[in-house]
């Protein structure tokens, strides 16, 4: 089984709902974002490249852990705190993490791994979001786990519940009948940093 994501960049208009859905469901500490919608365009977020004469270009790349098939991070972690599961999810075990940040150095996808540099802080004094999330810890690395706590109950990852553009899909890439497999068979796609040998499980339809 290989869980993966397909994101249709022709439809995604960068509304950031998936980023906030992840943040709220996982009760992410302040300033932590496991899913960031990046702007492929100009110098500033949400601005296009180009000009009126030659034409503009602006697309969005929701970027979170790519759950690579050949992850650099799992090889680098000295204690196996990050590991590739049978279902394809690259999991993060907070209790094992010694905070060496080797995985952050090894992962080519800058920014998908977050280290809690201080005691996690929140805006409210009680936990928001799902109730089965593993507690966030100071001085450990965290990242998207495909909402492993939801998968364990057969539920949908938070970012996949509803994309307003209907641009996000997830499923078993090993199953030819799954929505994601059909999409990547039918449509042109690109992937991020394919020259690093990581074989990511996220496909961006173009």
């Amino acid at each position: 089984m290989r869980l993966g994501m397909v994101i249709d960049t022709r439809r995604c208009f960068g509304c950031q709902t998936c980023a906030v859905a992840c943040k709220s469901a996982n009760n992410l500490p302040n300033n932590n974002w496991w899913n960031r919608v990046l702007t492929e365009g100009g110098e500033n977020m949400d601005c296009p490249a180009g000009d009126y004469e030659k034409g503009y270009s602006l697309t969005f790349l929701p970027t979170s852990c790519q759950h690579c098939d050949n992850p650099a991070c799992t090889r680098a972690c000295p204690v196996g705190a990050t590991s590739k599961r049978e279902d394809g999810v690259v999991f993060q075990d907070y209790d094992k993490c010694i905070g060496c940040r080797m995985c952050v150095a090894a992962c080519p996808y800058n920014g998908v791994r977050i280290f809690n540099w201080e005691e996690p802080e929140y805006y409210l004094d009680f936990a928001l979001g799902d109730k089965d999330i593993p507690a966030h810890q100071k001085h450990v690395v965290e990242k998207c786990t495909f909402c492993a706590h939801r998968l364990a109950q057969g539920k949908t990852p938070a970012c996949m519940v509803l994309c307003p553009a209907r641009a996000r899909f997830w499923g078993d890439l090993d199953d030819p009948e799954s929505e994601v497999s059909k999409l990547i068979n039918k449509r042109k796609y690109k992937q991020l940093l394919t020259d690093r040998g990581t074989n990511p499980s996220v496909y961006y339809l173009v």
């Binding site: 709902t17 859905a21 943040k23 709220s24 109730k131 509803l162």
Partner: peptide, 25 residues
């Protein structure tokens, strides 16, 4: 602790956005 999408009888109308997820705050 959370305000998330609830479905419409016709799922074509299902909706939620980044703002509506912020109500608890």
């Amino acid at each position: 602790v959370s305000t998330t999408m609830a479905e419409f009888p016709d799922p074509d109308y299902n909706r939620i956005c980044l703002k509506g997820l912020n109500h608890p705050l």
